[in-house]
């Protein structure tokens, strides 16, 4: 195995897997990243939650009831993951997409036909967007039907309603970007609702022009929707999401059957 083993000044040794792991994790570099040991003790499990900036949003201990799959159906979590999928695929699509009247549709064809994994990314962005609208709606229903909106969670419910509308507008602004017949006319009809903002005589034309930038859906509309879609709305949604998650913890975790009931 070791050809010149007998001539070496030390005894060669093939390291075992645990030894490699120990070498990698018990040194100053690793320890500067992760300030806890392998999470098989309560102490390390608690440290893992506390020393990670993302996990720190969550408590160290959670109620058993809030982990029941048939209580939450994981809908909020799924909606959040879809938001992440949409962020990642969306950023990738931005490398090939230009929000210009005469180029957007060509870009879409390029993404669908000649970019490596382009079709996969675009399909995923589209399907995840639809799934997120459905997921957020079902999440709202779940929260309502289990009483999760009630005191002390009223404020977080309101944030959730705002997030539902943010989801609608994110999806709708993205709908225009392919610049095909489906998107052009759906957005024409949708944004025409602006003309009915009461009082119509004053606000109608104003709302239309603020929304579209021109009387008809055009290049200006595309840029406006694009900007809302990639910057303004995702930022707003991210801020609301942060409050939403933080509030879950501040309101004592997920709702559950912890109070006294009148009957049963």
């Amino acid at each position: 195995m070791f050809p010149f083993a007998d001539r070496l000044p030390f005894k060669p040794h093939r390291p075992t897997v645990p030894e490699v792991i120990e070498f990698l994790t018990k040194n100053r570099v690793w320890r500067s990243f992760f300030r806890h040991g392998y999470p098989d003790t309560k102490r390390n499990q608690a440290l893992l939650m506390q020393t990670n900036v993302f996990l720190h949003l969550f408590p160290v201990k959670v109620r058993v009831h809030s982990l029941k799959a048939t209580y939450t159906w994981g809908l909020g979590l799924i909606s959040f993951y879809l938001f992440l999928i949409l962020t990642i695929t969306g950023v990738l699509l931005m490398f090939y997409y230009v929000p210009a009247e005469d180029r957007a549709y060509q870009n879409m064809l390029t993404i669908m036909t000649s970019v490596n994994y382009g079709a996969l990314m675009r399909n995923m962005h589209r399907w995840a967007a639809h799934a997120m609208v459905l997921g957020v709606f079902l999440h709202m229903c779940r929260v309502f039907y289990t009483g999760g909106h009630k005191e002390p969670r009223e404020f977080n419910w309101a944030i959730g309603v705002l997030l539902l509308f943010a989801t609608f507008f994110l999806s709708f602004t993205g709908y225009l970007l392919p610049w095909d017949q489906l998107s052009y006319w759906a957005v024409t009809v949708g944004s025409s609702l602006g003309q009915y903002v009461p009082p119509e005589e004053i606000m109608g034309k104003f709302s239309i022009l603020i929304l579209r930038g021109t009387p008809e859906v055009s290049q200006s509309t595309l840029v406006r929707f694009y900007t809302f879609h990639i910057v303004a709305l995702p930022l707003a949604a991210a801020v609301l999401l942060t409050i939403h998650f933080w509030r879950i913890r501040k309101d004592g975790g997920l709702s559950g059957p912890y109070g006294k009931r009148e009957e049963e």
């Binding site: 930038g213 021109t214 009387p215 008809e216």
Partner: peptide, 13 residues
Amino acid sequence: LSFMYPRLEAGSF
């Protein structure tokens, strides 16, 4: 809002 309110160009439509 005022910034977003477009000044329509003459010509074209």
